[in-house]
Simulated scan of single mutants.
Amino acid sequence: MATTIRGARAARRVDMVRAWVVLAAAVVQAVAGSLGGSGFFGESQQVLSDRYPSPLMPATIAFSVWTVIYLALLVYAVHQTLPGQPARAVHRATGWWFVATAVFNAGWIVVFSQGYLGTAQVLIVALLVSLVMILRTLARFPAESTVDRVLLHGPMAFYTGWVALATVLGATVTSTYLGAEPGPWVGALVLLVAVAVICGAVFRTVAAVPFAATAAWALFWIAVEAGAVVATVAGLGALAVVAAAALRARQGSRPAFG
């Protein structure tokens, strides 16, 4: 009996440590994101993106979605520290993956601002892989309430949809940095492949609607900013992603929102 009690207490301590590390990680990445845009860590992301142009660069307003993402993740991080939450299996399974995403995100911001675009691309790919692992894990844990959908499944899917396109954009910026300078036709082909992969992901992921929302948002603003060839692919791609999400939503609230 004593052993059982000690084991339960140890498990509670581990859960609380993880929960507070998740909260700290969410705060750190939000602060890093705010400072990174101003050039606090080196050159601003806007300056570097202008120096190494990409045919897939969206209009500046597209990046305002980061504010929504960081706020949603902060609310999630606070929620998972509340009584009864740290010991839930879903938080045990996803918490450390979330910490990894925060480390990769903050690291990407600092490294990109220092002009090490090759390393930054490795970090954003790692960020995307970590987010995919969170969504794969959430597939094993159906949302138990609307709160789960709004504070956990939804924000993680929303975040992943944006990072999926940001990774592709980053790859073309890195190509320019390395001297390849992809033109509009190459950009259009890369974007076409990306849209196909994202549409496929919409049909497989949980919380498909928030995932598709940020992907479509990115595609829309690429269409607004890009030349005719890329704009056509991006515009049609946004419509395809929205259509895929609508079809997925017809399968029920879990596929649609987690």
Rank of each mutant, 00 (worst) to 15 (best):
T4F: 08
D15R: 14
V17Q: 11
R18W: 05
W20A: 01
W20I: 09
L23Y: 08
V27L: 06
Q29F: 13
A32Y: 06
G36E: 12
G42M: 09
S44M: 07
V47N: 02
S49A: 12
D50R: 12
V65D: 06
T67N: 11
V68P: 00
I69M: 07
L74R: 03
Y76E: 12
A77I: 03
L82T: 11
P83R: 07
A89L: 13
A89E: 15
V90R: 15
H91L: 11
T94A: 15
N105A: 11
W108F: 13
Q114V: 10
G118R: 12
V122N: 04
V125Q: 07
L127G: 03
V129F: 04
M133V: 14
L138W: 03
T146A: 08
L152H: 00
G154P: 03
A157C: 06
Y159N: 08
V163S: 02
L165G: 00
G170I: 10
V173D: 04
T176Q: 09
E181F: 15
E181L: 12
A188D: 11
V190T: 14
V193Y: 02
A194M: 07
V197P: 01
G200W: 03
V202K: 00
T205A: 06
V209R: 04
V209D: 00
V209C: 00
P210L: 02
W221R: 04
A223R: 14
E225C: 01
A226M: 07
G227Q: 13
V229E: 14
A234R: 13
A238Y: 09
V241Q: 13
A243R: 13
A245Q: 06
L247R: 11
A249F: 01
R254C: 00
P255V: 05
